[in-house]
């Protein structure tokens, strides 16, 4: 997790607002904004690039992958946050991976049961969520030091941040590569020549590059790069 920026606002056990103002009223929003926008897992921290490049050939694939990710990161963060006082330090990584793997296999089985075609299209990438740095990153950096309510908000933020980037990449690749959005024809094949590059890997890199540049520009403007 070396690429992750330090979060000064995220010190241990500071969810004090919960006692007075219901559901983490005080910090919830800040945590959500931080997780999904200010340090967006893909565009800012450049984590989870592999699925962001691999499954984003179509918008629908991106959304399903994002949904699976949200489920896994929320489930594992919640459970690990519940267990945080009992988890011995030296086995915490093994415990995290076991819990994450459990949620990944659960969502994989549900996709196989109720969304067969999509499960075939996503292939190994649902299973590979286990190795996704975002999930383990949220567990290590946040869930293990914070209350379950806040951990869930943080996980949801990371999941939504991830899904949003995948959806943007998927939208452009499907639109330019196949002329469709969610399977509906938008660019008429009579005058639009499908751009195969966008469907293949280079298209993913190009869209991703533009997106990361755009996020950098948005958040840092023209400030010098040092």
């Amino acid at each position: 997790m070396s690429s992750e920026k330090p979060h000064p606002s995220r010190d241990a056990e500071s969810c004090g607002a919960c006692q007075n103002h219901g559901f983490c009223e005080g910090r919830g929003l800040a945590v959500f904004k931080e997780g999904s926008w200010t340090s967006n897992p893909v565009a800012i921290q450049t984590l989870g690039i592999c699925p962001a490049l691999a499954v984003t050939t179509r918008l629908e694939n991106s959304l399903v992958m994002g949904g699976a990710m949200i489920f896994v990161v929320m489930g594992s963060s919640f459970l690990l946050s519940l267990l945080r006082h009992w988890t011995p330090r030296r086995v915490r990584l093994i415990a995290s991976v076991a819990v994450i793997a459990t949620f990944v296999i659960i969502i994989d089985q549900f996709l196989r049961a109720f969304y067969w075609d999509m499960s075939r299209q996503l292939g190994p990438y649902v299973g590979l969520i286990i190795t996704n740095c975002i999930v383990l990153g949220r567990a290590e950096a946040f869930a293990m030091q914070n209350k379950p309510q806040l951990a869930i908000i943080d996980a949801l933020a990371a999941g939504i941040g991830f899904t949003a980037i995948l959806a943007i990449v998927g939208f452009f690749r499907e639109l330019l590569g196949e002329g469709t959005v969610l399977g509906f024809t938008v660019l008429d094949p009579q005058w639009y020549t499908k751009n195969l590059v966008m469907v293949l890997a280079p298209g993913a890199f190009v869209v991703m590059g533009f997106l990361i540049a755009f996020f950098n520009w948005l958040q840092h403007g023209n400030a010098d790069k040092s």
């Binding site: 086995v91 659960i106 089985q109």
Partner: peptide, 23 residues
């Protein structure tokens, strides 16, 4: 540590068995 690992293992196994049986 061993007891904790066993407990987490059992918890994960239960969740997985449930999901596998259901689907």
């Amino acid at each position: 540590t061993v007891c904790y690992t066993l407990a987490v293992g059992a918890l994960c196994a239960t969740l997985l068995t449930g999901a596998a049986q259901f689907t």
